[in-house]
Write a protein that binds this DNA or RNA. Structure first.
Lengths: 339, 339
DNA sequence: CTGAAAGCGCTAACAG
DNA sequence: CTGTTAGCGCTTTCAG
């Protein structure tokens, strides 16, 4: 019933013009020098009948939807889930709602999502991007909408980006293992050209090179089903029996890796030292506890939102492009030391 | 550039009327008996220039936004995260996007979200509801929009609901522990009146009553910070030293519980048998493995979406209200047996 | 079979 | 300081 009330109706009942009501509702009464008396009258009435402007009409008119697209690898991943949770909260406080999608690292799917978001006129994009969507994103940027990358960058795309220092983090992880006396350190990662994966790999490779130690690389396809991932890791560790430590490039690889390790009956850290990228409850509670590189989730979310709101609120073309690199913290636990 | 093209523009270029274009784009050319020739011409042109109707304008006109509200306890919870992932995928295939929010079981916050969703004219609601929002939801239902509850029901609200059999599941869990010889079985749950929690509690209580065994109940506030939860569980287990098994009513309580148990130096299952509601990687990989009641996540998501789409696509008032109760599977692992 | 035209509810330029 | 009014882009009734 109250849904049918429009701003015109409100204006009529109060015997003022819709313009006046509109200005007041948009907090521009001071600016427009509307009398306090009228302002209060309108505000009170609106409150009373519970009138809410139709946001669709407003959006159609203004071109703003107060909606932000959030594209992650998978919303059910602990890392991305926590990021989503934080972003949602902060965005909400500024009047924005989040439309999310899980890309599954699939380029085609992501392009479709992008189209859908465009149609819906989202105001901004927050993306953990798969490869191959530089063109589409560039088009969006050209159209004037903020695009913010996180977790990984796209080499050919100049836009604001929030990252952690993947290279240094993995390098430190490898150093840690080396200090603990491990000599044959493997790196199990995704079969992916994404920047964060690549940087983690580089950190691994160069550190081993520096120490003149051998490299053992296993790349696993993101699309493999769980059993297959476990099987591949198992086969890899078996085939290369000399491996005495593993760095997992990502949390879920480690989860599957632990299953493989158990199947093989290997003892951590006696037979195999472990470090993993990304922390989660499992790694803290596993026995022995798993040394993990913990990304500063809340800070990442904070930076994302504050950068984005900044862009959104500054109609002035903030032409400065920022890349913020945060530090990840290595939480040393039992799995990486033979002591 | 192409953003500026409207349906009128398209019509002009093709020398037909906007009406015709609109009908064709909405797949009603047959019904409106538009010539194949014109139809193909329009379709081809639209494809060529990549014209997309402005969904805002359409929504304003039709009142449909093709958006579904999804409200969960927390998007970063493994259970809800997986539900969200599945729902998103299926909704997308039917042209719907999801606007999510994490209620944190907070009634006031949830009410605010509800208002926001109403303003945005979402087409339907999927909610794991906190207590105390029956009135608001009833109003929405009265306005004709589908509201679907899951994970828990609201006693005074008659609407479609997808649940698992919480009572039976907990009862079975307790039976399992009893069969394994545990005598003093505690139940650690949330300080909450939500139906799913209540039903789990009832399953616990009545099973123990049936077996004439003592009850040990610990209720923990949802808003406690992690350390406090751990501390409370620790104190509880210490105070009631006779407890020899625990059923955790929810996954995160168990996560904190495990920390407490480790602090106390208790050995599972020798000193303490464990069963937990909801499964996750941690429980499978923990040592010993934790017996868990696994909810059929994919099926829950399937039922939610198919019920909802059904409502959405049947303009006929499908007045039948359905409550679907699914079975959860108990995955018996080492933590619940002394063998 | 196709076209003209009336809004959906709001904002903001332009007039007073 | 306030009111009139022209759209935003689309759907859909009603006439041809």
């Amino acid at each position: 019933m109250e849904k049918k009330i429009s701003i015109i109706e409100v204006a009529k009942r109060l015997d003022v013009s819709p313009t006046t009501v509109s200005f007041i509702l948009n907090g521009r009464s001071k600016e427009k020098r509307i009398s306090d008396e009228i302002r209060d009258k309108v505000l009170k009435f609106v409150e009373e009948i519970g009138y809410k402007p139709n946001s669709l009409a407003r959006s159609l008119r203004t071109g703003k939807t107060n909606t932000i697209a959030l594209m992650v690898e998978s919303i059910s991943d602990p890392f991305f889930g926590h990021i989503a949770r934080n972003i949602e909260e902060k965005a909400y406080k500024s009047g924005y709602k989040i439309l999310y999608s899980s890309t599954g690292n699939n380029t085609e799917k992501t392009k479709e999502f992008l189209k859908m978001y465009e149609e819906r006129h989202v105001d901004a994009y927050i993306i953990a991007a798969p490869e191959g969507i530089e063109g589409e994103l560039q088009a969006i940027i050209n159209s004037g909408k903020p695009v913010l990358l996180f977790d990984r960058y796209l080499k050919d795309l100049k836009t604001d980006t929030i990252l952690v220092d993947n290279y240094q983090s993995t390098a430190k992880a490898v150093e840690e293992l080396i200090q603990s006396g491990f000599k044959n350190i493997a790196f199990i990662t995704l079969d992916s050209l994404q920047s964060q994966m690549n940087d983690r790999l580089l950190g691994y490779e160069e550190t081993l090179k520096k120490h003149k130690l051998p490299q053992y690389l296993k790349e696993i396809s993101y699309d493999f089903p769980p059993e297959k991932v476990t099987a591949h890791i198992e086969a890899f560790l078996q085939r290369r029996g000399e491996i005495d430590a593993v760095v997992f490039a990502t949390n879920y690889l480690c989860v599957y890796g632990l299953k493989a390790i158990e199947k093989l009956g290997l003892i951590i850290p006696k037979d195999l030292g472990i470090v993993v990228f990304d922390d989660q409850d499992l790694f803290e509670l596993y026995k022995p506890q798993i040394t993990a590189i913990a990304q500063p989730i809340e800070e990442i979310a904070n930076q994302i939102i504050s950068l984005l709101l900044n862009k959104l609120n500054n109609p002035v073309k903030t032409k400065k492009i920022q890349t913020i690199v945060l530090n990840a913290e290595m939480i040393i636990r039992g799995s990486s030391s033979r002591a």
